[in-house]
Every structure is written in C-alpha cells, then in structure tokens.
Design a protein around this nucleic acid. Structure first.
Length: 807
RNA sequence: GCUCGGGUGGCGAAACUGGUAGACGCAAGGGACUUAAAAUCCCUUGGGGGGAAACCCCUGUGAGAGUUCGAGCCUCUCCCCGAGCACCA
C-alpha cells in the first residue's frame, strides 16, 4: 500500500479531533500562563474570505500556535464585524435583507476559517449583530453619556448622497466617500459625538509606552496632529469686538498684514460693513452650499471677500483688513487666522491675488531686512527677526516664545497646544447598526434608555433603505419610534440613528473572554485574567481609526472604573497587504482570489506554508500561485522522513548536530519576530542536510515536527502520532536547544586582501588573531596577492574575516 | 506638497551590531529512472571572461558622490514604486 501524504484525509481527521477533544479551548478561568492572541475580526462579506484575509489570519494563527508550544495557555478567538454600511449596501444591491444575508455569510466564513485550520476557540465566537453583543455596545454608549463623554450637537457634517448618511471626517478620502467614492456634501444635522479630543494628549503620550510597530505609532501621532503655538487676540475697536487666532508661528506676528475668517465664523455677520454685506452673504452662502470637502480638495485657487472691517495687529498696532475665505476652516483652531503672506504659502498666494501687503519679518544668514520676497519663506530654523521692533535680531525659534509671552503680558495672547483630531461623530442615519439608546422627551430632554431595558432591539423592518430626509429609516416606524420617557413616563421619541460600526469594533476584544455572561459586558475576573490583549495582529488600514477608538474607549472605561488598564493592546503588529496584479483585492476590480480551490487542491497546510513563505508577514506582496508546489514538496519529503524514522538510525554527524540546534534557535527567534519565511527556510535547510547525510534520527525528526506545527498543524499532528505520541503535538514544548551546540567549533574565515575576498581558511572558533592571520598568510591563494608586498595593516574580526592591507 | 515604507538574479526573497551578496523556494536547462509521461532523485543556473580540469579573474544590490581596511546596510544629492495625510494656520 503506497504510503503517501493525503492532506484532505489528514486535515479532516484532525479538525474533527480538535473539535472532539476541545484541543483549542483553553481554561479561561484558571490558566497558568494566559496569552490572548487576537486578530482583527473580519467583515463577513458575501464573497467569502479572500487570500489576503487568509494571509493575515494564518500569520496570527502561526504566532498563537507558537506561543502555545512555548507553554502558554493561548486564547485565540474569532468573530464577525457584521453591522455597518458595507453589509447594508450589499443587501440593498442584491435585494435581500441584511438580517437574512449576514447569517449566510457568517456560515460561509466559519466554514472557511475551520478549513484553514485556525486555532480558534469556537465557544467564544461572536457577531456584533447579535443582540447579546450590541446590548453592551449600547450599554457603553450609556456609560459615556452619563459620564458626559457623549454629547449632541448640530454640526456641519459630511453627507454622502449615495450612502445617504453622515460620514466621519475619517471616512472621507480625498473628498470622496471611502465606500462608494461619491463626492461628499455638507449638511447640518444633530449628531452624537464622543469627546475623544479630551483624551488627545493621553492618546499621544501613551504611544511611547506601547510595543507597536513604529509605522503604526507614527500614523497615530500624525493623526492626532499635535502642534504647539499661541492664541493671539486682534482687537476690532470700531465695534468693541476681538478676534482670536491660533498660530504655530507667533514669531511672524509683525508680518500679519491682514486677517482671514472662515465663512462660518460667528463674528462674520457682526463685523461685516453694510456696503460689503451683499457680497459677503453671497460668498457665505456659496461656501455653505459647497461641501466641506471640495473646499479641501480640487482646485486650490484662492477665493475670498473683504468684509469691510479692520482689526489691530497687537504687535504693530496697525490696522489690518479682515477678509473671509474658504481656505480657513472653522473646524481647526479658532476658525480665524492672522495672515502672514511673507512667511506662509497660502497667505502669500492670497495676498498676491488680492494685492495685499507682503512684509518680511524673518531673514536668513546674510539677507537684508529689505530683501524682497519672491515666495513665502516658511522655515524658522536659522532665521532671525527683522522689521519686528524690539525683537529684531532674535533667532526665530526663540522669538516664538518671547513674542507669545510679550503679548500674554498685555492680555493679548497665551501659549496653546492644538490637535488636529476632532471629536468622534458616532451617529449614522442608517438601519443596519445598533440603535443609539436614547429617548427624547419634551419635558426631560434626551434620556438614556435604562440599562435594564437594553438592548434597544433593532426592529425587523422591510423598508430599511435610506432616503434623502437625513433621518434614519427607523423614523418611519411609528410603533417603534414612540416610546414612553424612562423618567416621566410621558410619550417620548426614540433616537432613530444607529451608531458607527467603529463603536462595535472598539470593544470586541473585551467581549470574547466573557461571551457566556449575559448579565455583564465583560466579567471582571475574566477581564483581569486575559486583558489587555497580549498580541494583536491586523491590517494597516486600521492603524489609525480602529486602534485609536479602541484606545480611547479603554481609557474612558478605565476612568469610569470598569477596567484596570487603559491601553487595550500591549503588542501590535501590522501585517502587509496581499495584492493581486499590483492592486488591492476588491470585488469592483474583479481581482479577488478566493482560497477555497487552492485549499481543495493542495491542502490547508500547504497553502498556509505557501502564504507564510511568500515573504515577511509585515510586508505582504503580490499573490501569484507559482511556487505553491515548493512547500508541498517539502511536506512530502518530511512525510517520507517520518516514515523512515520509524526504522530509526543514521549517524548524526557533528555538523548536523550544529545545524539541528541552530535551527531550533533560529526558528524560535524568527517566529517571534514574525519572520516566518526565514523560519521555514531554516527548516527546509535542516531537512536537506538530513537527507544528504542519510540521517533519520527520531529525536531530530520529532523536533522538526514540533517546529513545523505552527505552520502545518494538521500535518504535524499526523506525523506526531505516527512517531508514536498519544496526545496532540500542541501538548509538546518547543524543542530546547543548546547554545554551545548551535555553533560549530570550526569556522570558515574569508581572507581579504585590500578588501577583496581572495580565499577562505578554516580555523577554530574564536581563534586568536595571531593564529588566524598566520593561517591566512599561509594560504597559497592569498600568497599570490601578498607575495613580495608589505602587509601594512591587518584587520581581524573574530569568526568573521581577515583583511590584509598591502602597500 | 508633507509623513512613513521600499527599490537586490528570469521570479518570490535572504544577508546578525558595516565583514564571503543572492540562503531557501519557484521557474528554466541537463541527466538518472520509465515502453512513455507524471512524480521522484542527481547536477547546473547573476552577468562577462580565462582554463583540459580542480579552479581563477573582472563585474554586479535604482543613479551619482562621500566616509571606511571593507558599504546592499552609514552620510549627502537625485530618480522610481507603494501606503497614509492633505489649504490643519
């Protein structure tokens, strides 16, 4: 009977055994060494998991299995991020109800996730659409509302006319809806916000303490956008008002020759002179009609209108004209700027177009105060003050503080730190999400739904399509819409908006360990045992929003006494993106590769190894199936090796012992650093050498199987059993290595002459310089180059090289 | 424009703190086995040149300069690709 490796049989057998034996179910209450291995949960699309998802999940799963082999109790849960516009739009497109569609997709996802052999604890699977889950999403909203961290305000918001909903600023990409690419418009709606800006400083500071990829931390830092500067006050004596501006360049205040307000600035109406009113109002109306976004993108031609008022520059005492222009944004700083055309590109452009004064107040080395400006000079470093009264000659960097202090002394300024971050708008005028648990009462105002009445169930309605009203479809259902006020019992109206999907995913890691508790969102003991998450792996596309919102929520829950930590993810690594033909996989591009056929043909283990062997996990790459037979051939060879090891034997040469120990060490280090491709390569090398040496040592083969187990779990289980072990290979421990045996006692030393390698000599490890150089100089190939020449210098790096410098 | 990555054989990629560039794998070519093919096994494979051969020489990590005994790696200038941000004062 031919004994060949049949992945379909092996994989089916072990998946059944894992389920039967509860192999992947750690003791959640009394783990000896808990390790929470988290991967970002997927949105269950209709197409199923594509190879990009498989790459990410396998990458995380390999790490979890490795930690388990190191003796940790690894909890590796999975779930579905199934609420949201994604699902709803798709349901509308195919004419189905999301409540019907989503369970189907989830079933398909689960089938795929089981097939790939993830070490998931299925007892704790969750979906954000489950009332037992979103009950607690609503509970979190209530906690924030009670704590004053949630508030409602009417705000100019981004409105997507196709999705018919509000988008967070973060969900607008280059003026287009990130989902459907429609140009975004501006609308004024009442929206719920979370006060994430109150935490900006803490979100920034804590970044330094986290074991995260630098790229991710940098992205968050940039998103938070901290800048130091000052608020300066410009009086408008004619009407007894003042305009406060934020600037990062107080050093240039002497060059502020005009001011610009955002068209929405509250002082515009009051400051506008009668003769300018018609023109100003026309401009304001036009700006309001244009969305927030086309103001930020597209043509950058500056527009603006003089409003007929003058303010006083607090530094020079001179009057400066006040303009409005849409390049000044109400949402950042104070919505007003002092314009310094000499030292700001935008102001320079504006001044040039409208013929406003341009004054130089900074001069570089050797530049005169009167030198004309061809363009704005925006640097400060290395520049000194000119045309700035008593500050002339002072370095600009120093003047930033000096001028702020000087103006502060007159009550006309103060140092200020600004963040780019805005409060988090969580309202969505859509159907497929958790209803925001608030009831409006004419007498009592906005009242949170009492906790014992949660969840506010999302009603099953057929007409869930959004319309242009700006109201959620739920508002059309009176039987749901009207509800008694929890405080006074009179008829009230429910909040009809649902919450942002990012709120669902901002706390899911807290729910996993506690899914069986129905009376609390997360059990305190379980949470203490398992949280914060030990290792988190996910996509860079969530490096900013999802991670930032999760961190914010953890901080709030910590401050409210619900958590004893404030950073949810101790270690985070971003995996790379798998692209196809250079483009991200997406249905619209038609380049989505579904892994099912590959798995059917090659087996899950081969496919896993292939994905992990493509390149470093953190880099991703272009998917092409060429080369998948490489890992398969490797597994076939190991299969044979295991069979032959039953007969045992073969001499273990000393060089093989070295390689054996070196491989155990290298694989452990590489896997820890997520360099899976080189870990696999090291195992391949070991196998090549064993075959070459005719070695079939049982212990060596057994060690190899354990090292292979994170990558090819079913295969390794089968081999482990064939080697005579009763239990799961995951009950084994990562094979120990001996550092002394992991290095050979002889080393090959390259010998260079004038930096060019001319020969190699073999010397004992850690040979003395004298011995190594003697060996090098005795080498005939070296002598050809050194003969008759004087060796002027000798470089010797132990176990590395000898370099002879000759004259 | 700004901020991060990245550019190494035909291809995916290795290369520790500056120390033998191309490990490992794919593909390709040659050979063994076979009636034949697949599979498997063995050999060759950055480019150029020399030698009967073991081997040897030159050259080579996007381009150019620099530091160094020595640079894929460090410094400067430039080009290209990818991602994110984008009138943020």
């Amino acid at each position: 009977m031919p004994d060949s490796y049949r992945p379909d049989e092996v994989e089916a057998r072990w998946q059944a055994r894992w389920a039967e034996r509860g192999t992947n179910q750690p003791d959640l209450d009394h783990p000896a060494r808990p390790f929470y291995n988290l991967m970002m949960f997927p949105y269950p699309s209709a197409e199923g998991l594509h190879v990009g998802n498989m790459f990410a999940f396998t990458g995380s799963d390999v790490y979890g299995r490795f930690k388990r082999l190191q003796g940790y109790d690894v909890f590796e849960p999975i779930g579905y991020d199934a609420f949201g516009i994604h699902s709803e739009n798709y349901a509308i497109k195919v004419g189905l109800h999301p409540a019907d569609l989503i369970p189907r997709n989830i079933a398909n996802f689960r089938r795929q996730l089981e097939r790939i052999g993830g070490m998931f604890d299925w007892r704790h699977a969750l979906s954000t659409t489950d009332p037992d889950y979103y009950k607690w999403t609503q509970w979190i909203f209530v906690q924030l509302l009670k704590a004053g961290k949630a508030y409602k305000k009417k705000a100019g918001v981004n409105w997507c006319p196709t999705c018919k909903t509000v988008l967070a600023n973060e969900q607008v990409e280059g003026g287009l809806c990130e989902r459907c690419k429609t140009p975004v418009e501006q609308r004024f709606l009442e929206q719920w916000f979370f006060r994430i800006t109150e935490y900006a400083d803490r979100l920034l500071r804590n970044l330094d303490t986290l074991d995260w990829s630098d790229t991710t931390r940098t992205a968050q830092r940039n998103w938070l956008g901290r800048s130091e500067g000052g608020e300066l006050v410009f009086e408008v004596p004619a009407i007894g008002e003042s305009i406060t501006v934020f600037t990062t360049r107080p050093d240039t205040v002497f060059g502020a020759t005009f001011m610009v307000l955002a068209p929405e600035h509250p002082l515009v109406a009051k400051l506008t002179a009668p003769e300018q009113r018609a023109e100003v109002e026309a401009y304001v109306t036009a700006a309001a009609g244009r969305d927030l976004v086309s103001r930020k993108v597209g043509e950058r031609e500056k527009t603006g209108v003089f409003i007929g008022a003058h303010a006083v520059n607090p530094a020079t005492g001179r009057p400066v004209p006040v303009w409005i222009a849409d390049y000044v944004l109400m949402e950042y700083g104070t919505g007003a700027i002092m314009a310094v055309p000499g030292h700001d590109e935008r102001d320079f452009e504006f001044a040039t177009k409208f013929g406003l004064d341009i004054v130089r107040v900074l001069a570089g080395e050797g530049e005169s105060a009167g030198a004309s400006l061809e363009h704005a000079v925006v640097e400060a470093d290395g520049f000194r003050m000119v045309n700035s009264g008593r500050f002339d000659g002072m370095p600009a960097e120093e003047a930033k503080r000096a001028i702020t202090e000087w103006l502060a002394g007159q009550g006309r300024g103060r140092p200020v730190v600004q963040f780019r971050l805005h409060d988090w708008c969580i309202s969505r005028q859509r159907y497929w999400g958790p209803p925001i648990p608030v009831i409006y009462c004419d007498a009592c105002g906005a009242v949170p739904v009492p906790e014992q009445d949660l969840p506010v169930l999302l009603p099953a309605i057929e007409d869930f399509r959004p319309d242009d009203s700006g109201l959620s479809p739920l508002a059309r259902h009176e039987e749901w819409y009207f509800a008694p006020c929890p405080t006074c019992g009179k008829r009230g109206r429910r909040e009809t908006d649902v919450s942002d999907t990012f709120l669902d995913s901002a706390w899911y890691y807290l729910r996993y360990p506690s899914t069986e508790f129905h009376d609390r969102p997360f059990d305190p003991a379980r949470t203490r045992t398992w949280c914060p998450v030990t290792a988190y792996i996910g996509g860079n596309e969530h490096a900013v929003l999802h991670l930032l919102y999760s961190r914010f929520l953890a901080m709030v829950l910590h401050d409210l006494g619900h958590l004893d930590f404030e950073e949810p993810f101790t270690r985070f690594r971003a995996h790379g993106l798998i692209v196809k033909d250079g483009a991200k996989m997406s249905k619209s591009r038609g380049n989505v590769v579904i892994p099912d056929d590959y798995i059917a043909q090659w087996g899950a283990d081969t496919f896993r190894m292939y994905l992990m062997f493509l390149g470093p996990l953190q880099e991703g790459g272009d998917f092409r199936d060429a080369g998948i037979n490489g890992p398969r051939r490797f597994l076939d060879r190991v299969w044979v090796l295991v069979r032959e090891a039953e007969d045992g034997g073969g001499e273990i040469r000393r060089d093989l012992v070295t390689r054996w120990h070196a491989t155990k060490k290298k694989c452990a280090e590489d896997i820890e650093g997520l360099h899976y491709n080189t870990a696999i390569a090291a195992m391949m090398e070991l196998v090549n050498h064993m075959r070459e040496a005719g070695c079939r040592d049982r212990q060596m083969v057994a060690d190899l199987i354990v090292m292979l187990a994170p990558f090819a779990p079913h295969f390794s289980e089968e081999c482990w059993e064939r080697l005579g072990h009763a239990g799961s290979v995951f009950e084994a421990r990562w094979p120990a290595w001996d550092d002394a045996l992991a290095v050979s006692d002889q080393v090959e030393l390259p010998v260079q002459v004038n930096g060019k390698t001319r020969s190699r000599v073999h010397v004992p490890r850690n040979a003395t310089e004298q011995a190594a150089v003697a060996a090098a100089q005795a080498d005939p190939a070296v002598r050809r180059f050194t003969a008759g020449k004087e060796v002027r210098k000798v470089i010797y790096v132990a176990n590395r090289l000898v370099n002879l410098v000759i004259g």
